[in-house]
Amino acid sequence: MTPDILCIGSVLWDIIGRSPAVMRVGSDVPGRITRLPGGVAMNIAMTLRRFGLVPGLITAIGRDAEGEELVAACARMGMVTDHIYRSEDLPTDRYMAVEGANGLVAAIADAHSLEAAGDKILRPLSDGRLGSAATPWAGPIALDGNLTEALLSEIAASPLFAGADLRVAPASPGKAERLRPLMAHPRATLYVNLEEAGLLCAAEFATAPAAAEGLLARGAHRVLVTDGGRPCAEGTQGAGVISDRPPEVLVTRITGAGDTFMAAHIVAEQRDASREQALAAALRAAATYVSGEIGS
């Protein structure tokens, strides 16, 4: 099966501890601990699947027991898993987070296997299975910042990505600066939060619209900047910046919200929504997700 969109990046196990209590460093409280398929690329793929698209996963997953279980879970969800790089000697990656009533308390992403696999994960885009240098993949690609800076730089200049509609998100603020090689890519749309926008620009911004203006001024082709429950912005070179405010909801979870926003925006544009309609649809989807109305 040919995927509708490729999701390149981290596909791993999310281990999330959630408590209804306000937490601080050293807190020891009752709550729930879940283990679910996650990772930026996976979270985007799951939302795309809910909207009816068939995503293809481009990632590295080990051949350990956790990896076999993860690939099987992806296949059951209706994702194309044929092009995943399966490593004999690298363990399956994991992400661990703790969330309280006051938001994300702490998180650790162990995506070392994806980083170690490097450009091996991109082989299907060059060997004819999904494209080649002569006939590159021409559809949408969701790309996440868990890849190394060297690989992201390679992708920015590669003919394998010259025909793609590139949608790019950092994996976390700590990895935001890895995206700099892709900022000036003429077919790239960057999805960042206010903190990540500031890191990319080496500046501080008070609002998402100001951050979008700043990114465009530094050469970005197109950007979307979120800021929690405050106004979000979309900016495009030559077309200016638009803004909208997310619906007010009771926040019950945080991990995966930005990925849901990005996926919903991609889907809206695939359905020919206007800039304003696509931004509003993405904000609605993210609000529904953080309220807990959609299952993980």
Rank of each mutant, 00 (worst) to 15 (best):
T92H: 04
P247C: 06
E154F: 09
T255G: 06
I108F: 11
G219F: 07
R35V: 03
A117H: 10
M96Q: 08
L143T: 07
I58T: 00
G174I: 12
V98P: 00
P124G: 09
P209V: 06
A150Q: 11
S87V: 02
D64W: 09
R253D: 12
W137E: 09
T236K: 09
H112Q: 14
L200Y: 06
P186K: 10
G295K: 14
I8A: 01
A286Q: 06
L70A: 06
V251A: 12
S296W: 15
R271P: 01
P55M: 04
R167Q: 12
M79V: 11
M96Y: 10
M79D: 07
G62Q: 02
V192T: 03
R284Q: 14
E115I: 13
G228N: 04
A164S: 15
T34S: 15
S274R: 00
V251K: 10
G295E: 12
A210M: 09
S274Y: 03
A109L: 08
P181Y: 09
F161I: 02
R284H: 12
T260K: 05
M183F: 03
D89W: 05
G235M: 04
E248Q: 15
R222I: 00
D64S: 07
H83N: 13
P91T: 08
Q237C: 01
G292M: 08
V241T: 01
A263G: 11
A202P: 10
P55K: 08
V22A: 13
D227K: 01
R86D: 04
L194R: 06
V267N: 06
R167C: 06
T92Y: 02
E276V: 07
L216K: 02
A117P: 07
F51P: 00
A281I: 02
P231N: 01
V192H: 05
R86Y: 03
P247F: 10
A21K: 13
R129Y: 07
V22L: 11
C74K: 07
L53G: 10
M77G: 14
L160Y: 05
A72D: 08
Y191C: 04
E269Y: 03
S87I: 03
R49I: 07
S153A: 15
A117N: 08
M262T: 11
H112N: 14
E293A: 15
V225K: 01
S158R: 05
A233V: 00
G38L: 06
I266Y: 03
R123E: 15
L160G: 04
T252D: 10
V105C: 13
P186G: 03
A164T: 10
I155L: 10
A72E: 12
T47R: 12
G56C: 03
T288S: 11
T34Q: 11
A239G: 00
G295T: 10
P124Y: 09
P30C: 08
I84Y: 11
I58G: 08
Y85R: 00
I294K: 14
E154R: 14
R178Q: 06
A164Q: 05
I266A: 04
A164I: 00
S158V: 07
A73C: 12
E204N: 13
N102D: 11
I254Y: 14
V29K: 05
T135W: 08
H221F: 12
